[in-house]
Design a binder for these strands. Structure first.
Length: 221
DNA sequence: ATCCCGCCAG
DNA sequence: CTGGCTGGAT
């Protein structure tokens, strides 16, 4: 088995195999932000159904005036719909402080913005980081389940908490917005295609550099 | 029956 | 740390 890859080398391997992902897969920054909440513990297809129900060109001003129960019904396909309706409302009230202008939010200091987002009911670290990365132009590593599973299997030593994992990767990975955007997208894509809960190591583009992949290969010999 | 790009309350 | 939240695809 080869030497352990740097995070940047891992990024390049994934990029070579999957190509540019150009995330987040939504039609506007506002949709991206809403869908970051809708997608919590839910598959993306169900998020698309919910987005369609909301209307493709939905605006923050309309959403904040919608009855919470009505909003809940519209986003029903995304699951946890009553909770998510509350979360979206809470987030909208925060967004209203910036007059619903994404550009205004982008001016806020990264650390300050992250704290503000985490203070909103229903916004945890992963959702906050996704919003910052794909709508507010703040680069950072998203230490989600896909990333943890992949990094664990590859054989990187794994920090215990989300935050420790995130800062560990950010120490050596370039502080570049587009690279972080692609990195997260590529990790998710890889997690869906090969590095699933029960991994499909056969034909995986990372077998040669993955501890788990090598073990499986060796076991077959 | 299991799995989805989580988060919060207890 | 655990349970609850919830629908839709497979």
């Amino acid at each position: 088995m080869a030497e352990k890859l740097s995070y940047t080398e891992l990024y390049r391997k994934l990029y070579q195999y999957y190509g540019p992902q150009e995330w987040w897969p939504s039609t506007s920054d506002f949709q991206m932000l809403i869908s970051a909440i809708l997608v919590q513990r839910t598959n993306w297809k169900n998020v698309e159904l919910a987005l369609t129900n909301l209307g493709e060109d939905i605006k923050a001003g309309e959403l904040i005036q919608m009855e919470e129960a009505v909003l809940a019904e519209k986003i029903r396909p995304s699951g946890f719909y009553r909770m998510k309706a509350k979360k979206i409302k809470a987030w909208l009230h925060w967004f209203q402080k910036y007059s619903f202008h994404i550009k205004e939010v982008q001016k806020v200091d990264q650390a300050v913005l992250r704290k503000e987002l985490l203070a909103i009911h229903g916004i945890g670290e992963e959702t906050a980081d996704a919003m910052m990365l794909y709508a507010f132009d703040k680069p950072g590593f998203i230490a989600d389940n896909y990333a943890m599973r992949l990094f664990d299997r590859i054989g990187y030593c794994l920090p215990k908490t989300y935050h420790a994992f995130k800062t560990e990767v950010e120490k050596t990975f370039p502080h570049d917005l587009e690279m972080h955007q692609e990195f997260h997208a590529l990790i998710v894509e890889h997690g869906k295609q090969y590095c699933k809960k029960t991994p499909l190591c056969e034909n995986c583009p990372l077998v040669s550099v993955c501890r788990m992949g090598s073990e499986k290969t060796n076991a077959l010999i």
